[in-house]
Simulated assay, not measured.
Amino acid sequence: MPQIKDLIEDLEFIRWVKNPEDKLQEYWQNWIEANPDRIEDVKLAREVILGLKFPSKKASPEVKKEVLNKLLQASPSEEEEKENSYTKNKSIKWKSFNQWEKIAAILVFALMLSLLIGNLSFFKEKPAPVQALKWINKTTNYGEKLNFRLPDGSIVWLNSGSSLEYPASFDSTVRLVKLHGEGFFEVTEDKNKPFKVLSENLTTTALGTSFNIKSSYQNVVIVSLVTGKVQVDDQLDNQQYLLSPGEQLDFDNENKKGKISNFDLEAVQSWRKGKLVFQKATFQKVKEDLERWYGVSIQVEGQPSQSWRFNGEFENQILDVILMSMSNIEDFSYKIDKKEVQINFN
């Protein structure tokens, strides 16, 4: 069933439907491209807002007079009555109407005709052409990190194996970017243009704030708020979460459930400072983070113990030092050959 409540209550959406100026047209075109599964919702919401306010075609006074005179003439002939005999038991005969009742019927008929003409012309309308918005894509490979500024002055840090798409200029009523992987944002405040980050099915909205988003591990999106305030919306299920500084949302895309909890500020920001931090990390989590951080491929023989939960912090350390430290705690041997790593559990 279409979910249109958020659209018909959105003032910017209503403005676009009733007065599709260039900036609004550009924004909602981008929104639809980012949410292709909601095209039918947009169409339905547009029809609900417009209601029956379709443009009508007015007849000339001469035509109106001619139609009225013909309808006010004598009642239908017997031959015409026979042709319509199948409706005699279901409706009142036209000849039994007095003059004022006939006029009322004519007005109702004219109104319905006007709505029908307007409705047909509405569906023939073609949407105004929208100029293609130029998007820029910043991408990091495994073992790389990137720091850059957006057109509005906001600063972005991209972790390894991540990408960010953003427009060449924020000319719309909203600053919209698309994140894949992990990124940290320091947003320049602009109350007239909210800053929105699309990550998986979630949209994180902020004005002037700093936060971290990670959407690359076990189908979970993690939004961690450092300063300011953000609102996180699940576009598919219309769920909404509000975060305060020090709070983190863990959203499971598979089960469509979100959980808000406190987080370690230093641990979340550590990757920007060259620190690799593990807190009760499973072996699978350690393996994926090392591959992403150092741009290597790790092959494993054997199985780690079920109780594996590794804690450690490494700042600007080479991979050999980290693996040596781990092997002293857990029982395994390793071998590094350029970008290939072999780990063997004893």
Rank of each mutant, 00 (worst) to 15 (best):
G153Y: 15
W100D: 15
G118H: 08
S91P: 01
L146A: 02
G143F: 07
P151A: 06
L146K: 12
Y142V: 04
A105R: 08
T139C: 06
P129L: 14
K90Y: 09
F109W: 15
K138Y: 02
W94R: 13
K93V: 01
K88V: 06
F123Q: 06
K145P: 06
T140Q: 05
K88Y: 06
L133S: 12
K124C: 03
F122G: 00
I103Y: 03
I136R: 04
K93P: 09
I136K: 08
V108C: 05
W135Q: 03
Q99A: 04
K145G: 07
A128M: 11
G118F: 09
A132S: 04
R149L: 14
M112A: 09
V108H: 07
A110L: 13
S121N: 13
K126E: 14
L107Y: 09
K93S: 13
I117H: 01
S96W: 01
N137Q: 08
A128S: 13
W94H: 08
F123C: 02
A110V: 03
A128T: 15
K134F: 14
A132W: 01
L120H: 14
K95Y: 10
K93T: 02
N141W: 03
W100R: 03
E125S: 12
I106K: 08
S154I: 11
L150W: 13
L107A: 08
N137W: 05
G153M: 15
V130D: 06
L150N: 10
K95M: 08
K93C: 02
L113M: 15
N137K: 13
L133C: 07
Q131F: 02
K102E: 00
K90Q: 10
F97L: 15
Q131Y: 00
L113A: 06
I103M: 07
V130Y: 04
A105Q: 02
F97E: 05
S91L: 15
L146F: 15
S96K: 04
P151C: 06
K134S: 08
L133I: 14
V108T: 07
S114E: 12
N147F: 01
N119P: 01
A105P: 00
K124A: 05
W135C: 00
E125F: 10
L107S: 05
Q99E: 15
N98S: 01
G143R: 05
L111P: 01
E144F: 12
W94G: 12
I117R: 01
F148T: 04
Q131W: 02
Q131S: 10
A110I: 03
S91N: 13
W135P: 00
A105S: 06
P129D: 08
W100P: 09
